[in-house]
Nucleic acid binder design. Structure first.
Lengths: 227, 227
DNA sequence: AGCAATATTGGCCATTCGACCAATAGCATC
DNA sequence: GATGCTATTGGTCGAATGGCCAATATTGCT
């Protein structure tokens, strides 16, 4: 579990910093943002706590960086990494399939942690709003391209994106609480409402959410912990 | 701010217990569930921390009781305390007006805290699911009565209730993050979607959410802290 | 090869937390 | 009015945290 003792090794600051962020992100995804501790991260890296503190003088910054890493990775996997040849409709289907697949998955719980921790961590708060804006931007762009190509129909893509994201946030909570009774019905509501927002027949998206591609799991997110 | 020094006063256990729960609930609403500490609660009551620990051997139980107190109070104010003469439509309007009035209000933040703390607090987790079930039950009953009296139209009231609550949860997050840009549009989405779920014209509910009755604040929740 | 910059270490401190416990004092009952 | 039950006190303990600092050793550069 713990890294074997290493003779002191000196690494280039950017690389070390990235290592720390990756380890912190993996830890936050695995055990929650609350257990993101200087000591825990240091232990995961086989390093002294003070070193983590050296790169991140305030834990708040570390939490913000870890969250940014995890959130950006997922967003990138769902948007930028999508095959550019896919039509907006297929892309949206894949998006919904990924986002409604698993209940209680790590990334939903991480978002929940981040929303809550916003209360006491200004840097994390800034990062959360940044990531939310980035989501809105990416999704808005997808919707706009769908409208341009004629497969979606909505007057204002940014507004539609905001609405869809709020729906998915509510679903996130259902997922996080594992309020199993109710998750399926909420998922149906999400799919139906999104279809309505996009001017689609619900069936066009519904089959996406129930589809079994990707084995029901979200795309892998790069992890720092060695196997 | 702090209670004046009191000569040791002995109270009946049920009364003292209620005092503690009320103070804890007020504290959680004011400063978040994370700052619900034996010492903080004791300080608010002008009492020694050990006493709080005497009534609640585990902080988890105290948090659960405090959350139950706040959540039940709000739910009671919105359902049981509603004038029985009001029609289901009027009741639903009042409900939406109260729930969509303020962004970033204390009770939404408390729910967010509770959802998150569920990770590490079993007793609180049980209480959260209990309160969610109670909300669904109350709302379901309201919808059913509306269907019976002909002002709502939906095939399955419990399912509709679950969907509406998920919508409101998403709104709660928007409120908690104070993602001001977006709150209004999300609120509109919530109102429109709820109207659709209930087989209503959106305008019938929309005017409710924008209405200014109640001065835009939620109904008062009993607080324990003396003025 | 020598040297200087600095990444890294090890340690320490103050704080806060939940939990526990014996002693004390208030209240009800007799 | 005396007495016993127990609510309440005051204090302590161990664990965990974030932050800070001087010493050290590693690495890249001259």
């Amino acid at each position: 579990m713990s890294a074997t003792i290493q003779p002191r090794k000196r690494k280039a600051p950017p690389q070390r910093r990235e290592e720390i962020v990756a380890a912190a992100s993996a830890l936050a995804l695995r055990e929650g943002l609350q257990s993101l501790t200087l000591r825990r991260v240091a232990e995961a890296l086989g390093v002294v706590p003070g070193l983590v503190n050296h790169y991140f003088p305030a834990v708040d910054d570390l939490a913000a960086a870890a969250f940014a890493h995890a959130a950006s990775a997922e967003r990138n996997a769902l948007f930028a990494a999508a095959p550019p040849s896919t039509s907006p409709l297929h892309h949206m289907r894949a998006l919904l399939r990924a986002l409604t697949a698993v209940q209680g998955d790590a990334i939903s719980l991480l978002w929940l942690d981040a929303w809550q921790a916003t209360r006491t961590r200004p840097a994390l708060r800034a990062e959360v709003t940044h990531q939310m804006a980035a989501w809105r931007s990416d999704l808005s762009r997808l919707i706009a391209s769908g409208v341009a190509s004629g497969c979606f129909r909505t007057p204002d893509p940014p507004t539609t994106a905001t609405r869809i994201l709020a729906l998915l946030d509510g679903l996130s909570i259902q997922a996080a609480i594992r309020f199993t009774i109710g998750y399926a019905t909420v998922r149906d509501l999400v799919v139906e409402t999104i279809a309505r927002e996009l001017g689609l027949e619900a069936t066009l998206l519904r089959q996406a959410a129930v589809g079994e591609g990707n084995n029901g799991t979200r795309p892998d997110i790069p992890s720092a912990t060695p196997p």
